[in-house]
């Protein structure tokens, strides 16, 4: 099976089969990644540009290493948010990068839909590395990869996503992806941070994390941005941690073999206690490894356009 899409903009637009193709390809990539010689020629002669309008360390590094391991030429562009409004338009920037022969443009942008706008206007494949509050598909793919790696499947699993759902592109991508693969997803967070109509996506909504945690197979904490407090979305960080922080006692409400995930970086002692972060149930570091594999898989699939229907082994 070939990946037919030009771009990867979100999991909203993918079928379960397409998601599984990415996850299966990532398995091979993880094998390469964890071998002694982390170098393959699959992207030799291809160029990958990361265009980040938001600060990022791990996602950017993850993409960069992924393209390097596959032998691509890669380059980075950093653009501040302020230049978005004053300077060159996104479309013009994209066309410039296109004209220099980029095969893949990886974009992170503070505004939802920016990757979609870019994708419509460039020949290069576009990978969404996070757009506003909309989607962060590669993060969700690595989350799902990690779950399937540990649990064998997502079908029928109970997944609890905890925290600031409203602002979270990670939550949105995971809800799209996991529900497509048959998981039962619950979300829990302060009612001020639950977006309107989210239940229409087929998720259960709770205002206590305890309810969402009961019998969960997978627990996913989300990063709470401290500046949300100033917007009046919750009274204090202390109260947030008190009602929505995950500690050992609360984690016990989930299944004994439940796994804990977090997209990072973690606020220790706020959304997750140090004891759960460092527990055997936590796979936060493995998620990071899997992230590179997922990104290698996507770069491979998107640059294979026009090739034979072959699988790498």
């Amino acid at each position: 099976m070939n990946f037919k899409n030009k771009d990867l903009l979100g999991l909203k637009d993918l079928t379960a089969e397409e998601i599984m193709l990415i996850l299966d390809t990532a398995k091979t990539m993880k094998y390469i990644l964890t071998s002694n010689n982390k170098k393959t020629p699959h992207l030799q002669g291809k160029s990958v540009v990361t265009l980040f309008y938001e600060n990022s360390t791990r996602t950017r590094l993850s993409f960069e290493l992924a393209s390097k391991y596959l032998g691509a030429s890669s380059a980075n562009i950093n653009s501040s948010v302020s230049s978005v409004q004053k300077g060159e338009t996104l479309i013009d920037t994209g066309k410039t990068i296109d004209a220099m022969g980029a095969d893949v443009i990886i974009i992170r942008h503070p505004m939802s839909g920016a990757p979609h706008l870019l994708a419509k206007n460039v020949k290069a494949s576009v990978i969404n590395a996070g757009d506003g509050m909309n989607e962060h598909p590669t993060q969700a793919l690595l989350d799902m990869f990690t779950i399937i790696d540990k649990k064998g499947t997502l079908k029928g699993l109970k997944v609890a996503i905890l925290g600031d759902i409203y602002h979270s592109r990670v939550a949105r991508s995971n809800i799209w992806g996991m529900t497509k693969l048959g998981a039962e997803v619950s979300v829990a967070g302060p009612s001020t941070l639950i977006p309107l109509g989210i239940e229409k996506l087929g998720v259960k909504v709770f205002n206590t994390i305890q309810e969402a945690l009961i019998d969960a197979d997978v627990v996913m904490g989300l990063r709470i941005q401290k500046e949300r407090q100033k917007k009046g979305l919750f009274p204090t960080i202390r109260e947030y941690a008190h009602f929505f922080g995950l500690d050992e006692k609360r984690l016990k409400m989930a299944k004994d073999d439940a796994i804990l995930l977090h997209p990072g970086p973690v606020n220790r002692g706020i959304e997750l206690s140090t004891s759960v972060i460092d527990s055997d149930q936590s796979f936060i570091n493995e998620q990071v490894t899997n992230g590179v594999a997922i990104r290698m898989a996507l770069l491979y699939l998107l640059t294979r356009k026009g090739g034979n229907d072959e699988n790498i082994n």
Partner: peptide, 9 residues
């Protein structure tokens, strides 16, 4: 509403 939620706007 629903659309703003799924578009992340």
């Amino acid at each position: 509403g629903y659309q703003s939620t799924i578009l992340g706007l």
